[in-house]
Computed example of a mutant assay.
Amino acid sequence: MRIIILIACFVPLIGWAQVGGQLGYQSLNLTSNARAAALGGTAISLADGDISQFFENPAILDSVGAKNIFIQINPYFADISVYSGAYSFEVGSLGVFAAGLNYVNYGSFEMTDEFGNDLGTFQAQDYTFQIGKAHTVGPFTLGASLKVAHSSIDTYGSTAILMDIGGVFRIRNNWSVSMVFENMGATISDFTTLESPSIPFDVKLGTSFKPQYMPLRFTITTTNLVNENFALEEGDGGRSNKSVDKVLKRLNFGTEVLLSKNFQLLVGYNHKRKQELRLENIGGGAGFSYGIMVQIKRIELRFSRATFHSAGGTSFISLRTDFNDFKKIL
């Protein structure tokens, strides 16, 4: 526990130096689980035993037992495929840890010389491996996740060492508040020696609550808390310069309809995504998302759909289970 506290005190100082650009390691901003995707793109305060939320906030691991497994496939745009997986395991008296992997396959590209002559093909991929641990004292849980991010294009590569620090405070059984310092760290090797890519450091704050007599759970998550004015987006047309709109672009909204333990519906809204990707005179559904959860015996299946543009969106398909329950399943 003392190690996690020391990390939480000193590592954020590294992260503040990374606020500058938004050009490097953008795969770190992709949603890594179907539940968060359906709730507007991110949800850091759902600490209810779902190991897939480990990608959102390492502090949720206090609610996850050993031998939980999660896998997901996300067919992205332009033949890009995103795969995610996580597994929890116990390490003696240290308790439960979790390890996760995100893999982005950008596919094959034609390679040519400066004269346009065909030289074959090359590939591009991004990998992010992380391992995390959480510790609880009373109603407060602190978690940390160490991450290694690697991006490769043909024979060139870039690697960064990063960390997420998160906390969960349980006000009541059905009400939690969370905060995450995300992607703190630095690049240790780069594609070239000319310029290192910026890392998408962010601070998020969120809450989840369920009214006592309603089959609904609401989630609100703030993002981009270290980005003061969204200067890059405001430069293009001035469509989103109103003060209220600037606030809404930092908020993600999600609702889970808890029809039963084995069946749930989810809906979400991301205002920033809508403003960035809608057409001039029509939104086309941009910013809205939805999903479904079905549990069959001990296996939880999820399907989510996030709309990015009037031309369409992207789907998330995931499976989660507990190896300890396999004998019960069979």
Rank of each mutant, 00 (worst) to 15 (best):
F89L: 01
L6Q: 07
V19G: 15
T193K: 10
L258E: 04
L330C: 06
D202L: 07
F97Y: 12
I51T: 12
Y127D: 02
V91Y: 15
L258N: 10
K67I: 10
L194K: 05
L162H: 01
A66T: 04
G143A: 02
T222L: 03
S198M: 00
Y106C: 01
A38V: 05
Q26H: 03
I299H: 08
G291A: 09
S27I: 02
M293R: 07
K327P: 09
P197I: 07
V11A: 06
I153H: 09
T255L: 00
P58T: 01
N324P: 03
F70A: 00
L265M: 11
Y290M: 05
V294K: 13
G20F: 04
I171Y: 11
F140M: 14
N102T: 15
E300R: 15
D325R: 13
T255A: 07
E182A: 14
R239N: 06
Q275S: 11
A34M: 03
I296H: 11
D236V: 05
F169H: 14
F218I: 07
F323Q: 07
A8K: 01
F140A: 12
A160D: 03
A160Y: 08
F308V: 06
N74R: 03
L279Y: 09
S27T: 14
F191K: 08
M293T: 12
I292E: 12
G284E: 01
T155Y: 03
L61N: 00
L28E: 00
T121P: 03
